[in-house]
């Protein structure tokens, strides 16, 4: 009985481990291939370790695309976009969860309905409106269309529903304004929820492809996904696999590791503690 159980458990971990390998393989491949020469990456012999060409590959991207500037563009758009979007959507989610007011239900249904419309359906009018406002080929033009994230509003509303109304009532009795209640009580209590949602918004901006693709045309303003596209679709130059992998190793892997670390940290929710 005991040994049968052990075999079952070993098999269980074996399957989970195979899954782990399959999911981790592309990331490991990015890291290893980023340090190899093109000839090695597509050569007849497999490689299982690090090569010596990482800096050379990176220098190649810097030369062809001004990679540091591209990274800077991506960081700027992602950080500003995430901050603005989280401010706007946290407020909206909190209000939709905790306030009864004329039009509130209507807004909620509008948000739910808008969630069903694929982003793709909006690229043409968005492009039209942005060019009307003179915002094509600007960072603002890339940030704007994703600020009112209905997913983030929906998530924040779900989290805020657990936020105890008693806290709001007692603060009102103490004479706090609604803005004070939001900033001094709701935000600290909802912090884990804000960080969890913010992390997804952050990844959304960092990975964004479609809107930057149609809005930016000046290579000086390109974001990371756009130079990846450029490297794989350049008809004039053969694809430099080592350089491509160097981009992935320095733009995907660090963000994914950051996600893993932060995700672990944010899992707990403060709502339980606040009510005590």
């Amino acid at each position: 009985m005991q040994s049968k159980r052990r075999i079952t458990r070993t098999a269980l971990y074996l399957v989970l481990g195979i899954g782990l390998l399959v999911f981790i393989l592309p990331y490991v491949y990015m890291l290893l291939a980023a340090t190899q020469k093109n000839e090695v990456i597509l050569g007849p012999n497999p490689f299982f370790g690090f090569g010596a060409d990482f800096l050379k590959n990176l220098a190649e991207v810097q030369k062809d695309y001004n990679y540091l500037r591209v990274l800077g563009n991506s960081i700027l758009i992602t950080v500003v976009g995430t901050l603005v979007s989280m401010l706007v959507t946290t407020l909206a989610g909190y209000v939709l969860a905790k306030y009864r007011f004329a039009g509130g239900t209507l807004i909620f249904y509008a948000v739910m309905l808008a969630r069903m419309v694929p982003q793709f359906a909006l690229i043409i009018p968005t492009f039209y409106i942005l060019s009307g406002m003179g915002l094509t080929n600007t960072y603002t033009g890339v940030i704007l269309p994703s600020v009112a994230s209905t997913t983030a509003v929906f998530m924040m509303r779900q989290y805020a529903l657990d936020f105890p109304s008693e806290l709001m009532e007692s603060a009102r009795i103490d004479g706090a304004s609604e803005a004070q209640i939001f900033w001094r009580i709701a935000v600290p209590v909802l912090e884990p929820a804000i960080l969890t949602t913010g992390l997804l918004t952050f990844m959304g901006y960092w990975n964004a492809y479609l809107f930057p693709l149609i809005i930016l045309n000046d290579p000086e303003k390109y974001t990371v996904p756009l130079i990846i596209q450029n490297m794989t679709q350049n008809t004039y130059k053969p694809l430099k696999y080592g350089a491509l992998m160097a981009v992935l190793a320095t733009s995907v892997v660090p963000i994914v590791i950051l996600y893993m670390l932060l995700q672990k940290k944010f899992q707990s929710n403060n709502v339980g503690q606040a009510i005590k």
Binding site: L87, V88, T89, L91, A92, Y94, V95, L96, Y99, R100, F101, A102, G103, G104, I107, A110, V111, A114, V117, A121, L122, I124, P125, T126, Y128, I129, L144, P145, S146, V147, A148, T150, V153, S177, E178, A179, F182
Partner: peptide, 27 residues
């Protein structure tokens, strides 16, 4: 409170109208 609610939700509404509602209708 209803006024406070409208003030707090208005930034979202503004973005929602400009970047989702109007584009949907235009489209």
């Amino acid at each position: 409170y209803s006024r406070a609610a409208w003030v707090m939700i208005s930034p979202f509404l503004l973005f929602f109208i400009i970047t989702l509602l109007i584009p949907t209708l235009i489209s």
